[in-house]
């Protein structure tokens, strides 16, 4: 009786161990097949872009491609800055101070992607003199904040820094 029990226990252990080790192996095999779809090394290497901004006149903006998305770099005029700063935060669907959204108030750097469904908004359009998304009618102000329309949040600010007065490094 005792012997029989021992035998079954050992059998159970053997089978359990086989199943466990096998399951670990299958898990380990699956990972490369999943991970191969993540951004590869060459994509990650392009994660930063340096942009020369010395040629941009006040009031004008350029659009550069970063990680496959447009980034708006706008040199704002005094009046645009003032307008962005004086807004009452209580009026905003997504309250953010303009100062929180820029590093130098003259330069607005943001992802040019509507936070509704990913279209690219048009510059200098809309009821708030900022951007207007033609897809579903979202209005953004001169700080890229959502003011009216279906978009839930302000346009995103990417990670960036001023390398010097003429160059911005995005990413």
């Amino acid at each position: 009786m005792d012997k029989l029990e021992k035998k079954t226990n050992r059998r159970d252990f053997l089978f359990t161990a086989s199943y466990t080790v096998g399951a670990v192996g299958i898990g380990a095999v699956i990972w490369p097949f999943v991970d191969q779809m993540n951004p590869d090394r060459s994509v990650k290497a392009l994660a930063t872009t340096e942009v020369d901004i010395s040629q941009i006149e006040p009031g004008k903006s350029i659009t550069v491609l970063w990680r496959g998305k447009p980034v708006f770099i706008k040199r704002r005029t005094e009046s645009e800055i003032l307008e962005a700063q004086k807004v009452n935060l209580n009026e905003l669907p997504h309250p953010e101070k303009d100062e929180e959204r820029v590093k130098k108030s003259e330069w607005l750097v943001m992802l040019g992607v509507c936070t509704h469904l990913g279209c690219v908004p048009l510059a200098d359009k809309g009821e708030y003199k900022g951007w207007f998304c033609p897809c579903h009618g979202s209005h953004y102000d001169t700080s890229g904040r959502i003011r009216k329309g279906p978009a839930p949040t302000n346009m995103e600010i990417p990670k960036y820094e001023f390398v010097n007065n003429n160059t911005i490094k995005i990413g």
């Binding site: 161990a17 086989s18 080790v21 096998g22 670990v24 192996g25 380990a28």
Partner: peptide, 11 residues
């Protein structure tokens, strides 16, 4: 790993 698994499966 495969050798360990093979031994287990063998027994």
């Amino acid at each position: 790993f495969l050798i360990i698994l093979t031994v287990l499966v063998y027994f």
